[in-house]
Design a protein around this nucleic acid. Structure first.
Lengths: 144, 144
DNA sequence: GTTCATGCAAAGCGTTTGCACGCAT
DNA sequence: ATGCGTGCAAACGCTTTGCATGAAC
């Protein structure tokens, strides 16, 4: 799949400019496909291409732009903010408050929720990347 | 209802000490009953009792303690962390990514979700204070 | 008496911002 | 040619931490 075409078009479509930096950040997120912090993306890009380094501030600004264009989503869990490419397939995260494990959740369990919320409140819920706090099976058994 | 007794007992029960500061923070959160940031709690306490002021660092440490004891929950949404008393009644938040409005959600829509998640994954989901990102009805109609 | 929590101040970290330059349009 | 995006560096806000004092056990 061509990241280039999609990203460029999506950006220009919303009146934003298409730059090398935006392409690189988008490609990095799209390729590695989990949550990544701004610093992780920065380091990843630096490792890929040591010659053309990008300052962290640009990564932050780029991520903000991509988020506004709804190409990436931001996930906040206490630590540094994480970003992920908005995938075609919705997926959710079960985050253990004790060991900080990040488990996957079958999206079918939430399939109809967005519709019900919208019907009741008019709120358009972005349920393609939900983070649910709790305690994983392992930590429930052992420890407090 | 007596905040004092419950809070004291719950703390001591988990091997923690009961102090005036912990009581005050717990009472403040319990009384005003929404999300409050550490700074809001600090200011609130200062306003209530100008003589006995508490440094912000103590508020943070106290909130961390109360969170560990599962008396309060932390909510992260990009800005400063917010804390709220773990209520008997579950309630959820619909947060508009554009205007940052915070709407309430009927908890019945999520009533059976925790059970289904636990049955499938063994993960104990804390679904009494879920934050769902999205776009409110007003921002969907007007603006981008 | 021992251990843990507090107050104070200072540092830490993640993130944002101002400004001059350069590139996409 | 115009205006938005970038790089650089500095600042910002939220949060944490070290250490000595004081309170809870």
């Amino acid at each position: 799949m061509s990241c280039e075409g999609d990203t460029a078009e999506e950006l220009r479509h919303t009146g934003r400019r298409f730059t090398v930096q935006r392409l690189k950040v988008a490609a990095a997120l799209r390729h590695c496909g989990g949550h990544r912090t701004a610093e992780e993306i920065h380091d990843l890009l630096a490792a890929q291409d040591p010659h053309a380094s990008m300052p962290l501030s640009t990564v932050y600004r780029t991520l903000a732009t991509l988020k506004e264009a709804r190409l990436v989503a931001e996930v906040d869990n206490g630590g540094p903010a994480a970003y992920e490419w908005v995938a075609e397939q919705p997926h959710h995260h079960l985050i253990c408050q004790r060991c900080e494990a990040d488990l996957d959740l079958d999206p079918r369990l939430l399939a109809d929720l967005a519709g019900r919320i919208e019907a009741e409140t008019g709120f358009e819920a972005y349920l393609d990347h939900l983070a649910i706090q709790g305690r994983c099976a392992h930590c429930r058994d052992h420890g407090a």
